[in-house]
Simulated scan of single mutants.
Amino acid sequence: MRALVLGVVFSAVALPCLAQTVLKSEPLVLAPYEVAFVRDASCPTGKVLKVTGAIRGLHRRKACVTLADEHASLAIATP
């Protein structure tokens, strides 16, 4: 019984952490090395903008990536 309860609790906690959401706009605040996926018009169809936060004084990294490569979900979150 304990193993069943432990398995259910672990899967409930672990599964939401595996998916990334695709935002409508780039977040204003992004921690260093934190990654956000943004649906942006500057990227071609089928790709999203991957924004990586940077430490103070440096610019954020931005690159167009496919959703399958980064395992992002198609859910759209509001910032």
Rank of each mutant, 00 (worst) to 15 (best):
G46C: 03
T52C: 04
A14G: 05
L6V: 15
V5W: 13
A63M: 12
S25V: 12
H71G: 12
S25F: 06
A68Q: 11
L58P: 03
V48W: 01
L58Y: 13
D69H: 04
E26Q: 08
V35F: 01
F37L: 11
P27Y: 01
K62Y: 01
K50R: 14
T52M: 07
I55C: 10
S73C: 08
L67S: 05
C64S: 06
V29F: 07
V29A: 09
V22F: 02
L4N: 10
A14E: 07
T52R: 05
A68P: 05
L18K: 13
V35E: 07
H71R: 14
A41D: 15
C64D: 07
I76M: 10
V9Y: 08
L4P: 06
T45R: 13
Y33R: 15
L15H: 06
A77P: 04
L58E: 11
P44Y: 12
D40K: 00
V51T: 01
V48T: 00
V51S: 00
V51M: 00
S11E: 05
T52E: 09
F37M: 08
R61Q: 15
C17E: 10
E70L: 06
A75G: 09
L15M: 08
L4R: 12
T78Q: 10
C43A: 08
V29N: 10
K62R: 13
K50W: 01
V51Y: 02
